[in-house]
Structures are given as C-alpha cells and as structure tokens.
Amino acid sequence: MNMLEIDDLHVTVDGKEILKGITLSIPAGEVHAIMGPNGSGKSTLSYTLAGRDGYEVTGGHMYYNGEDLGALLPEQRAAKGVFLALQYPVEIPGVATLTFLKTALNAQRRARGETELDALRTLKLVRQKATALNINEDMLRRPLNAGFSGGEKKRLEILQMALFEPKLAILDETDSGLDIDALKLVAEGVNALRAPSRAMLVITHYQRLLSYIVPDRVHVLAKGRIVKSGGADLALELEESGYERVVEVA
C-alpha cells in the first residue's frame, strides 16, 4: 500500500492558487525527493501535508495509510506519525528546548494511548539522540531555536525526527545552510530511520544531499505541478542542465 497518496491536489493560500493539481504516491519503505525552482510550491505542499491553517485544499485528496489527512488537525497528524522538518524552524523565546521536546513527545504518546515518559527517561532519550547529532546539553537548555545558528536549527529538527520516530517524514530543505560535517550527520540520521515501514519526502535544491540519501524517485515541481519524475539520476541531470530545460520540455 502507498504510505502517502496525493491525488490532483489543489491548494489556495490567501486567495491565490499555489498548487495546481499535484499527483504523487510514496510506497512504504521508499524515499522520494522533490526538487524545483524557488517559489514553485514545495514548502506549500509540505505545509499542506502538515495541516497548517490558511492552506486551503480546494480540490483533490491526500491519503496517509489510506486515511484522509485533510480531516485531521496538525497535532493529530503528528501523533499518527507525520513529521515535517521546517525550512525555517520557528524561534520561541520563553520555552526551553528540553521542555518543548518533553511536552511534544508526551503529547504524541498520550494521543496514541501510550504511557508518558517522566523527566528522567525523556532526558536520557534526548541526550542519547542529541549526542549522535553533535548537539550539546547547553543548546537543549536554551529557549527553543532562539539565537540558534541556521545549522543548529536544522540539526534540532533532525533531533526531533529521531526522537519522534515518525512514519512519514517530510524534510523541507533541511540541508540548506548546513556545513559539510553537519550534512553528513543529518544524512546519517535520516538513513538510520529508513525502514520498510517508513516513507520520506525530501525537498532539496542540491544533489549533494541526495548522494548521501539516495532516493528511490525524484520529482520536479514547477509552478504548482509535478512536471517530471524519474530515478535518482534525474537529480544529477538537473544539476547539469538546470530547471529551465526540464520545465520547458514539460
């Protein structure tokens, strides 16, 4: 069965149609990449999948394990295993990172009917995952993302992915702004989660990430539509020739 099935999806933001009929299926166990020019609608697609207010589905459907995603609140989608690593993670001064991680983890567990973890267990779990991503204790004590560097914010997104162990992970340009070492760490984090029961949608501008996380399929999004799909080689081809030709040909 397809883990994610998007069928002729139309999305309007502030009265403007941004997604104009997207059709895309990701079977369980696969990693798909989306590439495409700036402003083509990649982040819009990711926000719509995560359920952000103001992203109005005016046509088509999104199914997650056969369930209509559009009928679920963002927090319900998260509890069911949908995770979105944001292109621009939000700074929230006044909420300590560790407190946030614990609150989110336990909210998801509660929603799934699992027992909540106490402060000590959470801390142990977070520490263990953080070490693998080279995130130090000090960062965890600071307010959420406040004053974090671009790369630190992205690493914290991946830490959350590692902690929540989602079934469908959507990474929106998680590689942008990462140094080479961090890119490897992030790719390792993603690859560690690859499993027959999981699927991933990786949005990126760069072939470099895809040489670490080799995708099963690559899709090109332009002007709100998928204009081309292919294997991992398509990313290389795009890097060589740019989007213009692909978009024109379509």
């Binding site: 952000r52 989608r77 929230i92």
Partner: peptide, 8 residues
C-alpha cells in the same frame, strides 16, 4: 503551528 505540528 510549529508546536501543533509537533503534536502539542
């Protein structure tokens, strides 16, 4: 949105 997308 960020907090809700994380399950809160």
């Amino acid at each position: 949105f960020y907090l809700r997308a994380r399950g809160i």
